[in-house]
Design a protein around this nucleic acid. Structure first.
Lengths: 341, 341
DNA sequence: CTTTAGCACTCAAACATCGAGAGTGCTAAA
DNA sequence: TTTAGCACTCTCGATGTTTGAGTGCTAAAG
């Protein structure tokens, strides 16, 4: 970046800013007027030519204005990150909703995704941490309609899951209670992944002991843990799809978004890098092909010092980064606080 | 319909059929060739002119071929309903999946929606009956992290819900057990709507009795029943959006689909009419404006003789009705059977 | 050495023109 | 009642033409 002097930076900044708001290639003349440089268009042209040479700008065709490249956006994001202005006031509505929201993490995250998308017109995302990493608090079993067992699974992180399991025969309340005691004693306090691992060992031991109760317990537990991985809240589909930026290839993008599994992986991947500030991935920086002309802004929220999940937005590369970053960061902070109380 | 003779009906049938598969206005000449009428194009033209006069066909512009109106589609649907061909073989994959599916209704319906959309390339829908109409089987309570109470709610229909409620102070296991006993004794076997009603009465009684335990029970129950109404599974968004039929107004349609509350109402409304055969709503017959150029095929599934929910597809008016009807009907039947076993 | 004015050049977008092709309606004959 | 024939209409794509925005380059001015 050291090859850019003060003035050049200002020009680049102006071009990106202008393109973000108008979505039109920006010309030298326009820059001089709109941003009151005391320079002639010709000078700006020279500067822009330099910027193009360095790969910050590009021309759709010879006689069009300039358009930022991904590298240009990257400069812009880093530039504004330095002097981050407090963009508050966007978040009260979320806080207000938070009070009304259901008390569990799911409700909270759904709300977060919705707020994010409503305020940004981009795609709002929120997901709890990978369920395997969550810590089991307790497991409750009860029989249901004869030979079914309903399992409710509570984690320390506030995640709740339920599952219905069919057994060969009905289990008496007493048996059920003993199974439940056994399971909680054995597995409470471990993460789901750890439990999965322990189960495997348990299974061989069980064979040796030939204990019919433990055998049942293990089976129930194993089934209860086979929920589909994808817990993710996505909101703002329609506004996002309606954006003019990708009026072609809508099908492709819609397909990618509908694949929750895929989205979750993406979110985790990007979010894991985020420490205090939100992490930003721009267009071609994105590891995944389908997302090559989209940008993401993602931030993690925590509980008890550990990452408990991620929130973020996805938008076109020409998205309003300052606003998106402020929102994502703000909401992550609010969730962290909400979880701490 | 009595104004149409045999031959005219055949022509209309052919036009609709052809338009559905090609999505191109169909001309007189094409009809004679493709469907081997022993008539000249001119004669077909006359017939088509009649059909246009009656409102079954329309021309996009004077020198284009004919296109079915909604009334034309309606004729077509009624026509094929008479001689419904067994369109089986599409459904094994669903049955296979069914076995692998989770045992509760939610998993089943998600699967159904997905199968429907994958096989039809339209939007697949599935929803359990309005939750208010379901019958409470049992309610289970346990304390969680001090002053929270986790509630698990099981209905006779196989619907499972959970909810986390924050209390002013922690409740002892003993208290909780007593509350739970009270609630189940009082409310098991009633529908959610009935329970809501009873709760109101209970609240005044409670005041009179000033029973602190009952007061807590009532509060918990009330909160537990305030889950958001919208339980609906939607699948195939991306294929549907990608359909050429509505490349404009995608935003509008996407918006309508994203509004689950709205979709649920729509599904219920249409599904309630369906008795044995699937009910079909075509374009302008649709009560809702946003859906005016979409068609729906919906069928209800049952449990114990009572409607337990609905499945359906939404597609363009020019959709493959025979296939859609066969699929929707078939899946509804399979679900009904699965629930009965 | 930097900035600027001027000018020639390029290209996309908007608009008009034109012919081909598909399809119709009407009329008159079979 | 059906059909052949014909004139007519309209869309669509191809082909110019014009316009305007924007550039790069050069040479002069600061």
């Amino acid at each position: 970046m050291e090859m850019l002097n003060e003035r050049t930076e200002r020009v680049l900044y102006s071009v990106v800013r202008s393109y973000i708001s108008t979505n039109e290639p920006v010309g030298s003349r326009f820059i001089t007027k709109a941003y009151s440089f005391n320079l002639s268009p010709a000078t700006i042209r020279n500067i822009m030519a330099d910027l193009e040479e360095f790969g910050f700008l590009a021309q759709p065709h010879t006689s069009a204005g300039r358009v930022p490249t991904d590298r240009g956006y990257r400069f812009y994001v880093d530039y504004i990150s330095k002097r981050r202005e407090a963009e508050d006031g966007l978040l009260e509505s979320f806080i207000a909703r938070l009070e009304a929201a259901r008390e569990d993490l799911g409700g909270l995250l759904e709300m977060a995704a919705r707020t994010l998308s409503e305020r940004s017109k981009y795609l709002g995302l929120a997901a709890p941490m990978k369920s395997g990493k969550t810590t089991l608090n307790r497991m409750e079993l009860f029989s249901y309609r004869g030979n079914y067992v309903a399992v409710m699974l509570l984690t320390d992180e506030g995640l709740i899951k339920h599952k219905l399991i069919r057994m060969d025969q009905a289990l008496s309340p007493r048996t059920l209670r003993r199974i439940s005691e056994y399971l909680n004693q054995e597995f409470s306090g471990y993460t789901i992944d750890e439990i999965r691992f322990k189960l495997i060992r348990e299974m061989s031991r069980e064979k040796a002991l030939c204990d019919i109760l433990i055998s049942k317990a293990v089976r129930i537990c194993r089934e209860a843990l086979t929920f589909p991985a994808g817990d993710i809240y996505i909101s703002g589909f329609s506004d996002f799809i309606g954006l003019p930026d990708f009026s072609d290839r809508i099908g492709q993008i819609a397909g990618a978004i509908e694949d929750k599994h895929f989205m979750l992986k993406l979110l985790e991947q990007v979010g894991s890098e985020s420490e205090d500030a939100p992490s930003v991935v721009i267009g071609s920086e994105n590891p995944v092909r389908e997302m090559r002309d989209l940008s993401m802004v993602v931030s993690a929220f925590k509980r008890g010092g550990k990452t408990a999940g991620t929130v973020g937005v996805i938008g076109p590369t020409r998205m309003d980064y300052p606003k998106a970053m402020a929102m994502v960061h703000g909401i992550a902070k609010i969730i962290t606080e909400a979880l701490a109380r």
